[in-house]
């Protein structure tokens, strides 16, 4: 088995072993049950059981790599990964949008733990700062300002879960099949990667990319300000529009 199999998706599908096929099928079916159960009056206990089952099923791919020699980094990464899958399943299936956004925060925080174990401490810190410190807070702010207290129709009824879960699970089957065909080697002994090296690479090899990213940030700032401004309609019109004010208009 070599990496050239990655190019042939159908070969990967034919190569899928039962220990990949069974979690994918069961995980897809229970994810479908979970998303269907959101709209119906079922007990939260049942739904939570189904969700935990999904997390365990989908995390069983990573359990394979624990067989040969369980070490502390592998166990830690397994814990962080299971936590992030739990948060992702929460994002998919919580009925309240606030809870779903908090599930996303859990997923991204555990992603930072995986970065730490992949010898990328700077990436872990910046993920926590950018995602959890800025993005999640702003999204939660907008959610609380826009969302009413009880779940709306769009939080309960979903767009074609069968098609989406089928396609997603097919993709997962192919990726996990490709990963399982890769040869397993021992963990190499390397010096830890330093932030100094990262900075040197940023400002020598990828200087243009850094400049373009800065320009992108500037353009996004300008765009966000100009999109977010409230349009001033009716300030310059004649009194024709104010002749028949709507009944619901409140005095300013």
């Amino acid at each position: 088995m070599n990496v050239s199999l990655l190019s042939d998706a159908t070969t990967i599908l034919l190569l899928a072993t039962p220990e990949i096929l069974i979690p994918v099928i069961l995980g897809g079916v229970s994810l479908f049950l979970l998303q269907i159960g959101m709209g119906q009056a079922q007990t939260k206990f049942k739904l939570a059981l189904v969700g935990l089952g999904i997390v365990l099923l989908l995390g069983s791919f990573a359990f394979h790599f624990m067989d040969a020699a369980p070490t502390l980094p592998k166990a830690l990464q397994l814990a962080f990964g299971m936590l992030s899958v739990f948060g992702a399943v929460g994002l998919l299936s919580f009925r309240e949008p606030i809870h779903a956004a908090l599930g996303f925060a859990v997923a991204v925080l555990s992603t930072a733990g995986i970065f730490l174990l992949q010898a990328a401490p700077f990436i872990a810190a910046s993920t926590i700062i950018v995602y959890v410190g800025a993005t999640i807070i702003i999204f939660l702010f907008v959610l609380m300002f826009a969302q009413s207290t009880h779940p709306q129709i769009q939080d309960v009824r979903l767009t074609s879960p069968i098609l989406a879960i089928f396609g997603g699970m097919l993709l997962l089957l192919m990726i996990q099949g490709a990963i399982s065909t890769l040869p397993i080697a021992a963990i190499p002994e390397r010096a830890p990667q330093r932030v100094v090296d990262l900075g040197r690479v940023m400002y020598t090899d990828y200087l243009y990319a850094v400049e373009i990213a800065g320009t992108l940030l500037l353009i996004a700032t300008v765009g966000a300000i100009s999109l977010g401004q409230k349009k001033r309609v009716g300030r310059t019109t004649t009194s024709a529009s104010s002749l028949t004010p709507p009944a619901s208009q409140r005095p300013l």
Partner: peptide
């Protein structure tokens, strides 16, 4: 090595779950 393979597996899981979420959620 196995640590990299485990991380790749979790990356694929997060990507697929995000894809399903983008296609199904309506909010």
């Amino acid at each position: 090595n196995e640590l990299t393979l485990q991380a790749l597996s979790f990356g694929a899981l997060l990507f697929v779950l995000g894809l399903i979420g983008f296609l199904t959620r309506r909010n």
